[in-house]
Design a protein around this nucleic acid. Structure first.
Length: 729
DNA sequence: CTTGCAACACTTTTT
DNA sequence: GTGTTGCAAG
């Protein structure tokens, strides 16, 4: 058969990966080495050449975006989307299994998914019912504890608390949280994975069934898998007798940047040992960046230990050197970047060729301000997504409650939203009654009303709410999904509530609610035969599992601003990596632990390898952060890039800018400024923070004038005169 | 129940 | 410096 369309254009390593015989495979795919390509072509190869049924192929990714890209590319390569093939995220596939086997998984058929925010609220409710002080039992930490345990596959009874009273308390909170989830019929993200692991592991028949069914499992971004995800894959993978799926995992240990949320690089490092006879293939040829960029990246990452080892190379151009700009402060940094952007665009380049990358979101502000004043369109990635917005969650929670009256998190969210006279006091009473009778809050409310246990006012208000929900339910029983949404956002008073608020924000909220109705209208519902669902549950699931786009708008050509983390997987001709300062990047909090520092270094490696043609690094010698002035050192990562690949750009205002029509020489402006500030080289000065020192050097003029001072104790530093507040001694 | 003020914290993010 | 949250007064 003609397989040229599958193999053409692949290099040797890629081809070897795509056509390899059965057996465990680990593809170490460097940045820009055609990773997705190999995955997609491997699938096509299996189906078209090896005659593997699409039915027995599963491909797992981390993000919905990656999953849909993979699906689209397989489709493109094959002409059609092969029926029956499972392509999805870990959570999506786990969800599918749980829907199909809800009975065996011990779940209610209509179970709902808690996203992190729902989970956080749930934990706070549990803490309240246990009468624990939130100051001592910080909900975020509890959340981290519970998710951490679940990600390791541990139920409360598996956690060894020893004699540590704090740990014991954590375990009992975990237990209470599980009970609360069960009562409400909801499961959180980590539970999706853990529950589906247990489902298959503890059910001999299902285990056998799925092991038979899936002959090939392909995993993308394998370095990001956590303990439970890997355990789940291994359950389905081939045993000693060769029964089960062949694993084809693709990843890059050098791009493992999610250790802080439970990802285990160890999974990739020990893959060979755990899967004997693994064929390891390295994809090292890079099709993205110039030679200089790659060599810089190789140089940097070589400072890490515990690597599988890889050297990126290209047969393309060496390209320009990496540029390094030392800014006076964060304003100057932004100014420089925007100047470069203006220049780049005026040379006829697209704005969305350009990315501004930074370590933390707070850094985007300065860039945004200056982009705005220059009228340059830009887009900031990250932030709230559509289904995460407060007003949208309100609406969704009404529907959850309609779907299942026992959904306590939904009940608590909407019972007094908009306010209808059911205050904290009343809600506390309901919660307590629910806890005592071990029923849902809805049930408890009914009983409280029946027994006249509340004040007349509270009883009236609560009764009104119960009627409201019941009426909304009967009114919308027979209508289309979007009509149901329409009816609920009006009937609940949500639209009116947000409409009454003033300001742009409130307007946007009303618009969002209307947008939600359109989303419901346009919802493409594909019934899964294994797991039939009503459309409302399907929509709510969709909302939880795919929170939607951040900023739906703007396909306009704009400059891209994002954190280094969110840049993973993307590429841009021109990349600015800003805030290359010790303490910011690598971040202070990562400095203590060697492992954390290595992860920061990998993050830097990810950043560098985003750039195709030109990479510009910048740092500020003075930075205002959280309202404080900082004088950071340049990032140690800069020094770890071999100097031969870096071109330093120093602002040379006093030499190059002939502001005067007489073309004054620099020595003149030097003299004049020395007079202005009263500083001369060699002079003793006093700085508030660094103490005494003497002036070494001087450059720039006006607001951007800087001095280099050699401090007696703090060493030599460049300071911006207008900020430094130097006193002569 | 709403409003106002003080305390606080402040990497990174997907599902 | 900013945005969010908790608590107490209105």
């Amino acid at each position: 058969m003609d397989v040229s369309h599958i193999l053409d254009g692949l290099n040797d390593a890629q081809r070897e990966a795509v056509t390899a015989p059965p057996g465990p495979m680990l593809i170490l795919a460097g940045a820009g080495s055609g990773k997705t390509r190999v995955l997609v072509h491997r699938m096509a190869w299996l189906i078209q050449v090896e005659n593997v049924s699409p039915f027995s192929v599963m491909a797992v990714t981390f993000t919905n975006k990656a999953a849909s890209e993979m699906r689209a590319r397989v489709e493109q390569l094959q002409g059609i989307t092969p029926n029956g093939m499972w392509v999805g995220t870990f959570h999506g596939i786990a969800h599918r299994l749980l829907r199909a086997h809800w009975k065996e998984a011990n779940l209610p058929q209509q179970f709902q998914i808690l996203d992190s925010d729902d989970q956080y609220r749930m934990i706070r409710r549990v803490l309240k019912s246990l009468e624990l002080d939130e100051a001592r039992w910080v909900p975020r930490q509890i959340q981290g504890f519970i998710n951490g345990r679940k990600d390791e596959g541990l139920r409360p009874q598996h956690v060894d608390a020893g004699s540590d009273p704090i740990r014991q308390q954590l375990v009992s909170i975990y237990t209470a949280y599980e009970a609360a989830c069960k009562r409400a019929g909801v499961i959180d993200f980590a539970e999706l994975l853990l529950r589906s692991l247990e489902l298959i592991r503890d059910n001999e028949e299902l285990h056998k069934h799925y092991r038979n069914r899936f002959q090939h499992i392909l995993v993308d971004e394998f370095q990001d898998t956590n303990t439970i995800q890997y355990a789940w894959i291994r359950l389905l993978s081939a045993d000693k007798n060769g029964r089960g799926a062949q694993l084809f995992v693709v990843g890059d240990d050098d791009q493992a940047i999610y250790g802080w949320r439970g990802a285990k690089v160890e999974n990739i490092l020990s893959f060979n040992n755990e899967n004997p006879n693994t064929l390891v293939i390295r994809l090292e040829q890079n099709y993205r960046s110039t030679g200089n960029i790659l060599k810089a990246a190789n140089g940097l990452i070589s400072h890490n230990d515990d690597r599988m080892g890889k050297q990126l190379w290209t047969d393309g151009e060496e390209g320009n050197l990496i540029q390094l700009y030392a800014a006076f402060n964060e304003q100057d940094e932004a100014r420089y970047v925007i100047d470069r952007i203006v220049e780049h665009v005026s040379n006829g380049n697209a704005r969305d060729d350009i990315a501004i990358l930074y370590r933390s979101n707070a850094q985007s502000r300065v860039f945004e301000e200056q982009l705005m004043t220059h009228g340059i369109p830009y887009r900031v990635y990250g932030g709230l997504r559509f289904f995460e917005r407060a007003e949208i969650r309100d609406a969704l929670n009404y529907l959850r409650l309609l779907n299942n009256r026992n959904d306590d998190p939904a009940f608590e969210r909407v019972v007094n939203q908009p306010t209808r006279g059911i205050g904290n006091k009343t809600v506390d009473t309901i919660r307590e009654a629910a806890r005592l009778a071990d029923v849902s809050m809805w049930q408890a409310s009914l009983e409280l009303i029946a027994s006249n246990s509340l004040t007349a006012r509270a009883q009236n208000a609560l009764n009104g709410f119960i009627q409201l929900i019941n009426n909304l339910n009967t009114d919308t029983e027979a209508v289309e999904l979007h009509e149901q949404f329409e009816h609920v956002i009006h009937g609940s008073g949500l639209i009116e509530h947000y409409g009454k608020e003033k300001g742009e924000k409130a307007e946007a909220r009303v618009e969002n609610l209307e947008e939600l109705v359109s989303a419901a209208k346009g919802f493409q519902f594909e019934q899964d035969e294994d797991a039939p669902l009503d459309i409302l549950t399907a929509f709510l699931t969709h909302a939880a599992l795919e929170a939607g786009e951040g900023q739906a708008e703007a396909w306009e050509d704009c400059v891209q601003l994002m954190t280094l983390h969110s840049a993973k997987g993307l590429e841009f001709p021109l990349v600015f990596m800003c805030g290359m300062e010790e303490g910011l990047f690598p971040h202070q909090r990562s400095a203590e632990e060697e492992g954390r520092l290595q992860e920061e270094r990998r993050l830097c490696y990810v950043g560098i390898t985003r750039a195709r043609d030109q990479l510009v690094l910048s740092y500020a010698e003075q930075r205002r952060l959280y309202g404080k002035e900082m004088y950071p050192m340049p990032s140690s990562f800069i020094g770890e890039i071999p100097a031969e690949f870096i071109e330093e750009i120093r602002p040379k205002t006093s030499y190059s800018s002939n502001t005067s029509s007489y073309g004054q020489k620099s020595d003149y402006s030097f003299a004049q400024q020395d007079n202005d500030s009263g500083l001369t080289i060699g002079q003793r000065v006093l700085h508030q923070k660094f103490g005494e020192g003497f002036v070494l050097n001087y450059e720039g003029q006006g607001k951007s004038a800087r001095v280099e001072v050699n401090f007696d104790h703090a060493g030599s530093k460049w300071l911006v005169l207008s900020y430094a507040n130097l006193q002569t001694v």
